[in-house]
Design a protein around this nucleic acid. Structure first.
Lengths: 166, 166
DNA sequence: CGCAATTGATTGACATTATCAACCAAGCCG
DNA sequence: CGGCTTGGTTGATAATGTCAATCAATTGCG
């Protein structure tokens, strides 16, 4: 069962290097994207790019929806959105269903920006996965998702029931 | 103008969700570790933990070696080391081979701290991988490393030689 | 209806992490 | 020696993450 807790010292410490590998690949990807973005003279930090991406992809997009989808603090999302708004990359319009919230959508400029960013991302991802076949990429994504779900599902519960892990 | 937002690949959008999956699993892991650390009343931010870990695991450890191994700015490493030093978790001693640098090692307290941290990390990793078998974990690590290496190997190639990886 | 509780969004304050440039001292090499 | 590199430090600043408080709109309910 959970005997893999101690696999570390017994053999090649496969589990422990998981965190290492994760940190490194994420950092490498971030750096690559940051660099690509700067070289393409797209004056946006990575988080802004990701939020813009979310706005572009989600229909009926609200600030809260982004925060949940990206699993980030809504305060941070608000700030990023404000800057994107100030840059004229997105538009706000009232939500007819709820006057507290606004629906977000990319502006013309924002859509154009997304095109460029998408290219950069594709290039970076292609570079990153250049010696992987699609199955391997898919497998990696699948494993990553399962791990994410595992962590989200059980927020450190001591000895509770595992009834409804979704 | 917005026609090809979803032009990722042949089908789904497997490539694009790679960055998403990566960000999410990393964030989930970081959050879990941060929470575990706080709950265990270990007063150290995650980066400090990782640096302490590096100091504990590397022989003839220097600041520069850590920076390279963790692929982080050496300035940040210096600062983290200074705080670990101030907390009495590590010791510096002169490097006989090079008087510019100092060799780093965990103190008694640092070693003890590492024990506790190691437990927390094992718990978190075990939780994260609880429905994965060791082969899957190993595969994930392997894929992550290959992607990291891919990005490191070719810093942004412009046009030519798409099949000529340096 | 009236009102407490909730929700979406915002703001302030702050901690953590990342990046860049300048700098110093020690080593290297001609 | 004099120029260059290298390990480490410092300052400045950007970017990211987290928490708490607030406000207005909405909801639930007696």
């Amino acid at each position: 069962m959970v005997d893999n807790i101690n696999q570390n010292s017994s053999q090649g410490m496969p589990i422990n290097s998981l965190s290492d590998a994760l940190q490194k690949v994420t950092h490498a990807y971030r750096s690559a994207m940051t660099q690509a973005i700067r070289e393409a003279e797209v004056p946006l930090p990575v988080t802004h790019v990701r939020v813009l991406k979310a706005v572009s992809h989600m229909s009926d997009c609200t600030a809260n929806a982004i925060a949940q989808r990206m699993r980030r603090d809504k305060a941070q999302i608000t700030r990023v959105l404000n800057e994107l708004l100030a840059s004229g990359l997105i538009n706000k319009r009232g939500n007819p269903a709820d006057r507290r919230s606004q629906l977000l959508e990319p502006s013309i400029a924002g859509t154009a920006m997304m095109q460029r960013i998408k290219q950069l991302e594709q290039q970076t991802l292609a570079r990153m996965t250049r010696d992987l076949n699609p199955d391997e990429v898919e497998l990696f994504i699948c494993l990553a998702r399962r791990m994410t779900d595992n962590l989200d599902a059980s927020p450190v519960q001591p000895l509770n029931s595992l009834e409804n892990p979704v």
